[in-house]
Deep mutational scan, measured.
Amino acid sequence: VTLFVALYDYEAITEDDLSFHKGEKFQILNSSEGDWWEARSLTTGETGYIPSNYVAPVD
């Protein structure tokens, strides 16, 4: 499982989006939707859509 880490803070715009803070880690559930990925936060356990350009793979 490839994990991703937030590079910036993000505040949800719609109820389907997931708010997060810089440094938060995610498991990507679906990355086939283009620039918005469905993800689960490993910090909160919540799922929602995140902007793919706000995250990077964890080394």
Score class of each variant (00 low, 15 high):
1 V>I: 13
1 V>K: 12
2 T>Y: 10
2 T>I: 12
3 L>M: 10
3 L>W: 09
3 L>A: 06
4 F>L: 04
4 F>C: 09
4 F>V: 13
4 F>Q: 04
4 F>H: 07
4 F>M: 09
6 A>P: 01
7 L>N: 03
7 L>D: 02
7 L>H: 03
8 Y>W: 13
8 Y>G: 05
9 D>M: 04
10 Y>F: 11
10 Y>P: 00
10 Y>G: 02
12 A>R: 07
13 I>G: 11
13 I>T: 14
15 E>I: 11
16 D>F: 15
16 D>Y: 15
16 D>M: 15
17 D>Y: 15
18 L>N: 01
19 S>F: 03
19 S>Y: 03
19 S>L: 02
20 F>R: 00
20 F>V: 04
22 K>E: 07
22 K>Y: 06
22 K>I: 09
22 K>D: 02
23 G>I: 00
23 G>Y: 05
23 G>S: 03
23 G>P: 00
24 E>F: 03
26 F>C: 01
26 F>S: 00
26 F>T: 00
27 Q>A: 09
28 I>L: 06
28 I>R: 04
29 L>M: 08
29 L>Y: 06
29 L>E: 05
29 L>K: 05
30 N>W: 07
30 N>M: 07
30 N>C: 09
31 S>K: 12
33 E>G: 14
33 E>D: 15
33 E>W: 12
33 E>L: 14
34 G>E: 12
34 G>C: 11
34 G>L: 13
34 G>Q: 13
34 G>F: 09
35 D>A: 11
35 D>Y: 15
35 D>L: 14
36 W>M: 11
37 W>E: 01
37 W>Y: 09
38 E>T: 11
40 R>S: 05
40 R>Q: 09
41 S>N: 14
41 S>P: 00
43 T>K: 13
43 T>Q: 10
44 T>M: 02
44 T>E: 01
44 T>P: 01
45 G>R: 04
46 E>N: 12
47 T>G: 03
47 T>V: 13
47 T>R: 09
48 G>D: 00
49 Y>G: 04
49 Y>K: 14
49 Y>I: 09
49 Y>D: 02
50 I>T: 00
52 S>N: 06
52 S>D: 02
53 N>T: 11
54 Y>S: 11
54 Y>C: 08
56 A>V: 14
57 P>G: 05
57 P>W: 06
57 P>N: 05
57 P>F: 06
58 V>Y: 13
58 V>C: 10
58 V>D: 10
58 V>R: 03
59 D>H: 13
